[in-house]
Deep mutational scan, measured.
Amino acid sequence: PEDEKKAKEALKRANGDEDKAKEILRKLGVDPDRAEELLRRLR
């Protein structure tokens, strides 16, 4: 869904750096736990 698209985009923008991607997602208003879960799934 929408969050998943955001997560993929964030990872791309962060050049695969998960911590940076998490930060980006947090700024986009995605719940930190949700962000973590999404990134884990994309790994």
Rank of each mutant, 00 (worst) to 15 (best):
D3N: 07
E36S: 06
K8D: 06
K20H: 08
G29N: 05
L25F: 01
E23L: 05
E18N: 08
A7R: 01
R26L: 15
K5N: 11
R40V: 10
K6E: 08
K6S: 09
K6A: 12
L38D: 02
K5W: 12
R40Y: 03
L42F: 06
E37G: 04
R26I: 15
N15R: 11
K22N: 06
P1V: 14
R34W: 15
V30F: 15
K27W: 07
K6G: 04
E18A: 10
G16C: 11
E4L: 15
D33S: 12
K6R: 11
K27F: 08
D19G: 13
L39A: 01
E37Q: 07
L11M: 10
I24R: 03
R26P: 01
A14G: 04
A10T: 02
L42M: 08
A21T: 03
K22F: 11
E37F: 02
D19T: 14
G29F: 00
K22R: 12
L42A: 07
A14W: 03
E36N: 08
A10I: 06
R26K: 14
R13L: 15
I24D: 05
G29Q: 03
K12N: 10
E4M: 15
E36H: 04
K27D: 13
R26H: 11
P32S: 12
E23D: 10
K5Y: 11
E9L: 06
L25G: 00
D31Q: 09
G16E: 03
G16D: 04
E36R: 04
A35M: 08
R40G: 13
D19I: 13
R41K: 14
L39R: 00
A10F: 00
K8H: 09
K20Q: 10
K12L: 12
D33A: 14
L25K: 00
N15M: 12
D19F: 11
D33V: 12
E2H: 09
L11D: 01
R41G: 11
L39C: 03
R13E: 15
D3G: 07
R34L: 13
A14H: 03
A35Q: 02
K6D: 07
G29Y: 00
A35V: 12
K20R: 11
R26Y: 07
L28P: 00
P32W: 08
E2Y: 09
D33R: 12
A14K: 01
K12D: 11
L38V: 06
E2D: 13
P1E: 15
N15D: 11
I24H: 05
E9P: 01
K27E: 14
E4H: 10
L11S: 02
D19R: 13
A7S: 03
L28D: 08
E18T: 10
A10W: 00
L39E: 02
A21N: 00
E9G: 07
D17A: 04
E23T: 06
G16K: 03
D31H: 12
R40K: 14
D3E: 12
A10V: 04
K8F: 09
A10P: 00
L39W: 00
E37A: 05
A14Y: 04
L39T: 01
P1Y: 13
R13S: 14
G16N: 07
N15H: 13
A7N: 01
I24L: 09
K5C: 06
K27S: 13
I24Q: 04
E4I: 15
D17F: 05
R26M: 15
K6M: 15
E4S: 08
P32Q: 10
E23S: 07
R43S: 13
E37S: 04
K20Y: 09
A10R: 01
E2V: 09
E23P: 00
E9M: 05
R41S: 12
E23W: 02
N15V: 05
E23Q: 08
K12P: 01
V30T: 04
E4A: 09
L28F: 06
E9D: 12
R26G: 10
R26D: 07
D17P: 01
D17M: 05
D31P: 14
L38I: 12
E18I: 15
D3I: 10
K12T: 10
R26F: 06
R34E: 09
E36Q: 04
R26C: 06
K12H: 12
P32T: 10
A14R: 01
L39Q: 00
R43I: 15
V30H: 03
D31L: 09
D33I: 11
E4D: 08
L11E: 01
K27L: 14
D3M: 11
E37V: 05
A21E: 02
A35N: 01
V30L: 10
L11V: 05
A21L: 05
L38M: 10
K8Y: 09
R41A: 11
P1I: 14
P1D: 14
L28H: 06
L38E: 03
R41T: 07
L25H: 00
K27A: 13
L38H: 03
G16I: 02
D33Q: 13
D31F: 05
L38N: 02
D17W: 04
K6F: 11
N15E: 09
E2A: 11
K20W: 09
A21Q: 02
K20V: 14
K27C: 09
D19K: 14
K22P: 00
A35E: 01
E2K: 07
P32G: 11
L38R: 00
G16H: 05
G16F: 09
D19S: 14
I24G: 02
D31Y: 05
E23M: 05
R41M: 11
D19V: 15
D31T: 10
E36Y: 03
E9T: 06
L28V: 06
L38A: 06
R40F: 03
A14N: 02
L28W: 11
P32M: 10
K8S: 08
E9H: 08
K27T: 12
K20E: 10
K20I: 14
R41L: 10
D33W: 09
G29I: 03
E23A: 09
P1F: 15
D3L: 13
D33T: 12
E23I: 08
D31M: 09
E37I: 06
A7T: 06
D31S: 12
N15S: 08
V30D: 01
